[in-house]
Amino acid sequence: MVRIESVSKSYGNTSVLTGVNLEIAKGERLVLLGPSGCGKTTLLRLVAGLVNPDRGRIYLQGVLVSDGNKVLVPPEKRSIGFVFQDLALWPHFTVWGNLEFGLKAHGVPASERRRRIEEMVDMVGLKGLEKRRPGQLSGGQKQRVALARALVLRPGIVLMDEPLSSLDWELRARIGKEIVALQKRFGFTMVYVTHDKEEMKQMATRVVFMEKGRICADHQSPLFPAC
């Protein structure tokens, strides 16, 4: 599903990723775990196409999307869902507007848009909140809107960059369970970035440990190796 070959990335004189190789199979829930500054978010953004690698290649479902610092397929064409750390909900759109935006951009007809949004709103527990703006929602509700927006386009891959970091532990546990349930239901491939080991235990079918821009361990079940 996702293949990353010898990808490196630097910002100025600081090397953020060095020779990273990673293959992610379809339907996996892969957690990228590591300390702050180890390159997890950068790796995610490279897969999304928001950032170009300096070297290396990225394939999404067998299609070469980035080759060196050339972006061959821009982010809007990669059919990826992304849940940002700050959620990135558009404050001037309602919940409905936030979900509808991507569907309109893809030319989905109005009736189909309505059907998908209603289905998604029901699934993530946002019924009755469609007309509210993000400023009028609680933390957990905003989180659900961000999730719904990423999923409404039915992407094959969903990338999540520490989406629960701003929530309290109870809400984190609850929404974490909901994310896993949605993944099992939709069957998308999930790449989840966190530095929290409890989240890792909850989410992962596979854990990749990163440190200083490199992958130092890759496990099919959540263990805690020395890095």
Binding site: A48, L50, P74, P75, E76, K77, R78, I80, G81, F82, F84, Q85, D86, A88, W90, F101, G102, A105, H106, R149, L153
Partner: peptide, 12 residues
């Protein structure tokens, strides 16, 4: 991230 989210959603 607001513009990036729109780009990810498919907006040119």
């Amino acid at each position: 991230s607001l513009e990036e989210a729109a780009q990810i959603c498919g907006a040119g």
